[in-house]
Computed example of a mutant assay.
Amino acid sequence: MGERKVTVAAEVGLHARPAATFVQRAMKAPMDITVAKAYGSKPPVNAKSILGILALDVRQGETVVIRAEGEGAEEVLDELAEIAGTP
């Protein structure tokens, strides 16, 4: 299973437009992808769910963990990390 820890760079966090872009890219991937706050008590959410991403309430400067498993997972994780912020 691949994973990326990413510090969210967007001023609005992982909300609105950044979240929509993130979900659109995740939806193109054939594998399951999850996102969770690196330091939080909320369980991981489906990266293909805009409501799940928004429910995480990720703000600028917070770190998230993106996980995926399967063929092409590393490439997808790299692209999602770039959308979300700074690895």
Rank of each mutant, 00 (worst) to 15 (best):
A9N: 14
A19Y: 00
L77D: 06
I53F: 05
Y39P: 00
D57W: 06
G52D: 02
E82D: 13
G85P: 07
I50V: 03
V6C: 08
S49A: 11
G40R: 11
A16S: 12
A36I: 04
M1L: 11
E3F: 15
G13R: 10
R4D: 06
Q24W: 06
S49T: 04
Y39R: 13
E69W: 01
G40C: 09
E69K: 10
A47P: 07
E79T: 14
V64A: 13
H15D: 02
Y39A: 14
K48F: 08
G72D: 07
T86E: 15
R25T: 05
E79P: 00
T86D: 14
M31Y: 05
N46C: 15
R17H: 03
V45R: 12
L51R: 14
K5F: 15
H15M: 11
N46D: 08
A36S: 14
T21M: 11
F22A: 08
V23D: 07
V23P: 06
V65A: 09
T34D: 09
T34S: 11
R4Y: 11
I66F: 13
D78L: 04
Q24G: 01
E62W: 05
G70L: 00
R4P: 03
G72R: 07
M27W: 08
T63L: 02
T21S: 10
I83T: 14
E74I: 03
R59F: 00
I53M: 03
A47R: 07
L14I: 12
A36R: 14
Q24D: 12
I53Y: 05
A26S: 09
G72I: 01
A29K: 02
R4T: 15
T86V: 11
A68K: 04
F22C: 01
L14P: 02
E79W: 00
L80K: 04
I50S: 01
D57F: 06
T63I: 07
K37E: 12
M31W: 03
R4A: 13
A26P: 06
T63K: 10
K28L: 13
V23Q: 08
G40Y: 10
D32P: 01
G52W: 00
L56R: 01
V35D: 06
S49Y: 10
S41E: 12
R25L: 10
G2Q: 07
P43D: 06
D78G: 09
L54W: 10
P18L: 07
E82R: 13
A16M: 05
E82T: 15
A81L: 04
A68L: 03
P87W: 06
T7P: 06
A19M: 06
R25M: 10
E75S: 09
V76W: 01
A73S: 15
A10L: 01
P18C: 10
L77M: 08
D78E: 14
S41G: 03
P30M: 00
L14Q: 03
A81I: 00
V65D: 01
E62P: 05
P43E: 11
K42V: 04
P87K: 13
E82A: 13
